[in-house]
């Protein structure tokens, strides 16, 4: 396999990427997918506009973004389904379009719309896809893992959305790929199915597979991803591990949540905390205090409660969630 055309990585980019890769698994986190300056236009409009992305083996890389941000187009360029208008894409050191033949056996794909033929039975389809590979995973073992046996003989047309998604995921991994692209893998799934999918993704990661997934589910990204790229308007606008993104620049927790009696007078609390804190009763009996959390701030809060003779049901320090970060970055307007 010719590997000499594998691109050198920009040192700065490599540093961010490796620092952010949290998974301690044995795989040595070689770069599996490298996208640099990707541009893709539809009818002259740039849907992807200078996007950079790195995904490593033995790691889950999540691509988050609002609808129309360019996630799917980016993934499709990596899958060789679309040709870039600018920039470079390398998967396992290969050009996904020019070297498609070399990559197809090593890359597993789950399309956003499933891409499953509708007239065939679920397991028949999986067996058919398996026939394309020399040494596929055993169909029955994978079907067991993803709970496909319950509807093995049902035609794809009659499956629920979540069942179809599980069949599509099985088809993506049946060939023992080195790289897997999952476009919104758990859309339409019930919580049990989602757990099964997440477990499988974690197992693939432990086996050294590079997993790239797009998702709208913040908890999915937060639970699964070693590295998150937030995409908007065709570019990556933030990148890092979930912790790096939610902590800001290593600033630590940024909020204190107090559950206590409703309707407390907050004047004394505002006076006790530094001036830049934002204090409010977000719902009855739940007080959200936002600012740079430190031991003194926690002491000020508990001191204020003691002074007023109020016993709190809970006092919790916490970070912003990934969803908060995402909304801050991409805006709260519908689009």
């Amino acid at each position: 396999m010719p590997l000499s055309d594998a691109p050198a990585i920009d040192p700065a980019q490599a540093a961010t990427a490796s620092a952010a890769t949290a998974s301690p698994a044995g795989a040595d986190h070689e770069v599996a997918v490298q996208v640099r300056g990707l541009v893709k236009r539809y009818d002259g409009r740039a849907v992807v506009d200078g996007l950079d992305l790195v995904a490593r083996r033995g790691a889950v890389t999540a691509v988050l973004g609002p609808n129309g941000a360019g996630k799917t187009t980016t993934i499709e360029c990596c899958e060789g389904l679309r040709s870039p208008d600018g920039g470079t894409v390398r998967v396992l050191g290969h050009d996904p379009v020019a070297d498609a033949r070399a990559l197809r056996p090593r890359v597993g794909v789950m399309l956003q719309d499933g891409g499953l033929p509708t007239g065939v039975r679920a397991l028949e389809l999986l067996r058919h896809v398996a026939a394309m590979y020399a040494a596929p995973r055993p169909v029955d073992e994978l079907a067991e893992r993803l709970g496909l046996h319950g509807f093995a003989r049902t035609t794809v047309r009659r499956l629920s959305g979540g069942q179809r998604q599980r069949v599509a995921l099985a088809a993506a991994v049946i060939g023992r790929p080195d790289v897997v692209f999952l476009d919104e893998p758990s859309a339409g799934m019930d919580p049990q199915s989602r757990r099964a999918v997440w477990d499988l993704v974690r197992e693939l990661r432990a086996d050294g597979v590079a997993i790239v997934l797009t998702t709208h589910l913040m908890d999915e990204a937060a639970d699964l991803a070693d590295h998150v790229h937030v995409v908007d308007h065709g570019r990556v606008i933030a990148s890092g591990s979930v912790r790096e993104l939610t902590d800001g620049a290593g600033a630590g927790p940024s909020s204190i949540r107090v559950e206590a009696a409703a309707g407390l007078d907050l004047t004394g609390l505002r006076a006790a905390l530094p001036g830049d804190w934002v204090v409010g009763e977000s719902e009855a009996g739940v007080y959200t205090l936002t600012g740079a959390v430190d031991p003194a701030a926690v002491a000020a809060v508990t001191g204020w409660l003691a002074e007023r003779g109020v016993l709190a049901r809970s006092v919790t320090t916490g970070s912003r969630t990934l969803e908060d970060v995402f909304l801050d970055l991409t805006g709260r307007n519908l689009r």
């Binding site: 396999m1 590997l3 000499s4 594998a6 050198a8 990585i9 490599a14 040595d28 070689e30 770069v31 599996a32 083996r57 396992l92 050191g93 197809r104 056996p105 090593r106 026939a131 394309m132 590979y133 020399a134 040494a135 060939g175 023992r176 080195d178």
Partner: peptide, 14 residues
């Protein structure tokens, strides 16, 4: 950087 290693055995069916 270490070049990505690909598995040696062919993975596609004939």
């Amino acid at each position: 950087m270490s070049a990505p290693t690909l598995r040696a055995e062919p993975a596609a069916a004939p």
